[in-house]
Write a protein that binds this DNA or RNA. Structure first.
Lengths: 362, 362
DNA sequence: TCTTGATATTCAAACGTTTGAATGGTATAT
DNA sequence: ATATACCATTCAAACGTTTGAATATCAAGA
């Protein structure tokens, strides 16, 4: 057992044990075209020995020589946001058949970490990078190095086509429209709205969707029923924001029969706040979320929400990147730079018709 | 700009641009001890040029030469299980100051993927591996290659010390005891229990905790109130199991005033099922979960549960591995092979005293 | 003038792979 | 006998970096 005292088994160990050259062993174990010429018996012998010694090729040496790493960087702006999980999952799903490895890192919403991890991804020579981020951050210089090294990039969660970066995202405005239409069709007219943080890309288009659909239905949005989440990066803060707004709105005495929340956590916060204030959901007030993350599905009542096709978005991003890297003849279909996916209304138990005998003070 | 048509900027590009040797540039940019001898002006010039060209050292070449990768493998048995997120976060937290990179991969509960990713981690020459897995799987041969290559390993979520593998986990039995005691102290005597899947490590000790505490309180556990989740690997299936058991138990007519669920998703499923059957939580029935994942905190009523110090577990695992790899003099403190952390009762709104006038048929 | 001792820089080998070209075979066709 | 083809294997160079040893320059001390 020619094995170094410490460290990994290498080709040369296997070669020595087989009494063959390193080349032959490499050719067989990496299944290079030349391995056709290696006697079947030899091949068997080599493979057996390799697995007996526990040999695993060194990716670093291989990447160095082949000048390909079979690696994709996945930079999530905040993995603790439930939003990211399915996206990452979709990416992995797409990468697997291509034998690519996802280097996933989590910037935890911190700009400094974002920088650092982007650098690490570059140092690891990822062939492409997928950024999952809906926060609006100053990315100009961040992405400059990526360009200097000719690494293709795709962003999931916001539209950066203005900077010529391919973008995959949900049609937030359409989602807003659908959400509002759902409430309108149930008969609601006095609808409270919680707008998302200004620094979040999704906030504006969702709000526009709400407004357009309201206008179309001839509904005036009472400005006293419109709330605005602050710019807090912790995803849990939107839950607390929801709780607080619910209490404010109830104690204000202004009449309303439904709430459109910026996202699911805000909606769940609203439900908590409304419940603690003595209202029942959906009997006294309907609540609609946005995203369809796990907590929305397992809460009681289940939360009516707008589902983003997160997994599909991840998949699309990865596939597009793979196509860029390996422009195989057949794969010449052009991807539009902006891929905007349709959201989907998921009706659960948190919405219903407005209460008949609602007191309308003021 | 001496740059290859395609590909990354390398030391030799920077060297040529500076009219210096590769060695000098390397010494400066990697801040080797020798860089003390390099003139300050030269250092500045090199650094400026490197950043102008967008140079990033190639970790593959570096790892090859240095024979260290500054990389740790993190193999989660199922990342879509909310359980894993905080653990991974804790690991990252501990790895960061040591300048280690976490190679995190997600086996999605599939044995085949587990194998494949373990291989990838080995090929990437991770210096250590952290496995996050509470499922009981046949790991003997899986881990053999890790040993052959002298890669230290730690497992989070179950006790594998019998196989001489350092293990970090929560004291499930103690958690079971605390959960039961909480219900008993509220006055409950007729308590339903949902046991976890047999293939899950946590199931047995939690059940033992429930039983011990019940025995100590002089409570008989009615076998008709004990349910058993099937061996399904999808974490969402436990939610559905909870829903179903709730309906069964209600329609059976057997009296009960509280439920101890195997984990939070099961508990949330129970709440859904009980609610749909017309019972109120906690007025008609108290429910306790286990784990304290995000959905438990944002549901209404908030779920009373047993919190696992997940983040801390991840941190501990990573620190122990780092200590193994860099046995710096001061760090000689011995880690016990089994690190069992205390769980913590988190009281929220899903538990309360038993209903006074409960009908007790049978 | 010759050491000695800094300081500033370069040489060259090595890390573990891959792979185009080369090597010696042996069998078949001319 | 010689060329041709194929088979099984090996040579050697390269990928981008690090680093112990070597070199070159200059100043000061003997």
């Amino acid at each position: 057992m020619a094995k170094r005292a410490s460290g990994h088994v290498t080709l040369s160990h296997v070669a020595r044990a087989c009494e063959l050259s390193i080349s032959t062993v490499s050719i067989v174990l990496s299944e290079a075209p030349l391995s056709r010429h290696v006697a079947e018996a030899t091949r068997q012998r080599i493979r057996a020995m390799a697995s007996r010694l526990g040999y695993h090729p060194d990716v670093h040496a291989r990447s160095l020589r082949r000048r390909r790493t079979q690696t994709m960087g996945v930079l999530a702006y905040d993995l603790s946001d439930p939003f990211c999980i399915p996206v990452v999952h979709g990416i992995e799903e797409a990468l697997q058949p291509a034998q690519y490895f996802a280097l996933q890192v989590n910037a935890q919403g911190k700009r400094k970490l974002f920088d650092r991890y982007l650098r690490m991804i570059l140092e690891r020579r990822a062939e492409g990078v997928i950024v999952i981020a809906s926060w609006i951050f100053e990315e100009a210089d961040l992405l400059a190095d990526i360009e200097k090294n000719h690494v293709p990039i795709v962003i999931v969660g916001r539209d950066l086509t203005a900077r010529r970066i391919p973008s995959v995202l949900v049609d937030n405005k359409a989602g807003g429209v659908v959400a509002m239409q759902h409430l309108v069709s149930l008969g609601h007219r006095r609808i409270a709205i919680v707008r998302g943080p200004e620094e979040l890309f999704d906030s504006e288009p969702r709000w526009q969707g709400f407004r357009c659909a309201a206008a179309e239905a001839g509904i005036d949005l009472d400005p006293r029923l419109v709330f605005q989440l602050p710019n807090r990066l912790d995803p849990r803060s939107s839950f607390e924001g929801g709780v607080q707004f619910a209490k404010e709105i109830v104690s204000s005495g202004i009449s309303f029969t439904a709430v459109l929340a910026f996202d699911d956590l805000t909606a769940l916060g609203m439900i908590r706040g409304l419940t603690e204030a003595g209202l029942r959901v959906p009997a006294d007030c309907s609540v609609v979320g946005f995203d369809d993350i796990l907590p929305a599905a397992v809460a009681t009542p289940g939360l009516t929400t707008i589902r983003q096709p997160l997994e599909e978005m991840g998949q699309l991003a990865a596939e597009r990147l793979l196509a860029t890297l390996n422009p195989s003849d057949s794969d010449k279909k052009r991807y539009p730079r902006l891929q905007m996916l349709a959201p989907q209304l998921v009706v659960r138990a948190s919405t219903g018709g407005p209460q008949q005998a609602g007191p309308i003070p003021e």
